[in-house]
Amino acid sequence: MEDASERIRRWAKAGEDTALPDWNELPTIPLYMDQVIFYLGENLRFFERDGQSSLLTSSMINNYVKTGVLPHPEKKKYRREHLAALLAVCMLKQVLSIQDIKTLLAGEELSEELYNLFLTTHTAALQETCVTLAENCDTGENLKQKALRLAIEAYAKRAAAERILCELGRDTAEAGKPEKKRQEAE
């Protein structure tokens, strides 16, 4: 029978070759909600905690549109830009608040350039983590200690990202104030 270390090693090895779709691999024809859920579900399956809990539902998508994280679909159809944004949101919401993601995306369509930056960074971080994790399993490192170290690193990086987005949000709010109010505030 396979133990936890072997299952984790197998998962990590699979993660070394896992990547979200490139911009040009995203569907070019607009999709309806159920098609979006299916397409993104297939692409996000590796990241689900237990392989059964979905990272995206139609209610989530509707809420992202209502809160301005995602632009409105056109005639109930979602374009490539929507799919790219949803892939990014699904990953980012694991560590950032929806408000921080909204600040990051600014409620606009996710451009090819920003998606490529997200994709490159995501792929590199996933591969680095999975390679290290597989090596740890091979050498017999204590998995609880590894989980603790990964969680603390994630926390520290999340705190730094939140601070950056908080300050960017303040700058955006200040830029939105009329000039007279800004001068009074100074």
Score class of each variant (00 low, 15 high):
residue 1 M to K: 14
residue 2 E to W: 13
residue 3 D to N: 15
residue 4 A to V: 15
residue 7 R to I: 11
residue 9 R to K: 15
residue 9 R to G: 09
residue 13 K to V: 14
residue 15 G to P: 09
residue 16 E to P: 03
residue 16 E to M: 14
residue 18 T to E: 15
residue 18 T to K: 08
residue 18 T to Y: 14
residue 19 A to L: 09
residue 20 L to I: 07
residue 21 P to A: 08
residue 22 D to N: 08
residue 23 W to G: 02
residue 23 W to K: 04
residue 24 N to M: 06
residue 27 P to G: 05
residue 28 T to W: 03
residue 28 T to M: 05
residue 29 I to E: 09
residue 29 I to L: 10
residue 30 P to A: 12
residue 31 L to W: 00
residue 33 M to H: 04
residue 33 M to Q: 03
residue 34 D to N: 10
residue 35 Q to P: 02
residue 36 V to F: 04
residue 37 I to Y: 04
residue 38 F to I: 03
residue 40 L to H: 01
residue 40 L to I: 02
residue 41 G to W: 05
residue 41 G to S: 07
residue 42 E to N: 09
residue 44 L to V: 02
residue 45 R to E: 11
residue 45 R to S: 10
residue 46 F to G: 00
residue 48 E to K: 01
residue 50 D to I: 01
residue 50 D to S: 03
residue 51 G to V: 01
residue 53 S to H: 15
residue 53 S to W: 01
residue 55 L to S: 02
residue 56 L to T: 04
residue 56 L to H: 03
residue 57 T to R: 01
residue 57 T to Q: 03
residue 58 S to A: 15
residue 58 S to H: 03
residue 58 S to M: 02
residue 59 S to M: 09
residue 62 N to M: 03
residue 64 Y to R: 10
residue 67 T to K: 12
residue 68 G to K: 06
residue 70 L to T: 06
residue 71 P to Y: 09
residue 71 P to M: 05
residue 72 H to Q: 15
residue 72 H to K: 14
residue 78 Y to F: 15
residue 79 R to H: 12
residue 79 R to Y: 07
residue 81 E to V: 06
residue 82 H to M: 05
residue 83 L to V: 07
residue 83 L to F: 02
residue 83 L to Q: 03
residue 86 L to D: 10
residue 86 L to Q: 05
residue 90 C to I: 07
residue 91 M to Y: 01
residue 94 Q to K: 11
residue 95 V to Y: 06
residue 97 S to H: 06
residue 99 Q to M: 01
residue 105 L to R: 02
residue 106 A to C: 07
residue 108 E to N: 11
residue 108 E to C: 07
residue 109 E to P: 00
residue 109 E to Y: 13
residue 109 E to W: 04
residue 110 L to Y: 00
residue 111 S to I: 06
residue 111 S to Y: 03
residue 114 L to G: 00
residue 116 N to C: 02
residue 116 N to F: 01
residue 119 L to D: 02
residue 121 T to D: 00
residue 126 L to C: 10
residue 128 E to V: 10
residue 129 T to F: 10
residue 133 L to C: 11
residue 134 A to E: 14
residue 134 A to C: 12
residue 136 N to K: 10
residue 136 N to F: 12
residue 137 C to G: 00
residue 137 C to T: 05
residue 138 D to V: 10
residue 138 D to K: 12
residue 140 G to M: 11
residue 144 K to Y: 13
residue 145 Q to C: 09
residue 147 A to L: 14
residue 147 A to N: 05
residue 148 L to H: 08
residue 150 L to Y: 10
residue 151 A to G: 08
residue 151 A to R: 03
residue 152 I to D: 00
residue 153 E to G: 02
residue 155 Y to E: 13
residue 155 Y to A: 11
residue 155 Y to R: 11
residue 159 A to S: 12
residue 160 A to T: 08
residue 160 A to D: 13
residue 163 R to H: 07
residue 163 R to M: 02
residue 164 I to F: 07
residue 164 I to K: 03
residue 167 E to R: 09
residue 168 L to Q: 13
residue 169 G to L: 10
residue 170 R to Q: 14
residue 170 R to W: 02
residue 170 R to Y: 09
residue 174 E to M: 12
residue 174 E to Q: 07
residue 175 A to K: 13
residue 176 G to M: 08
residue 180 K to V: 12
residue 180 K to W: 14
residue 180 K to M: 11
residue 183 Q to R: 15
residue 183 Q to S: 08
residue 185 A to S: 13
residue 186 E to Y: 08
residue 186 E to Q: 11
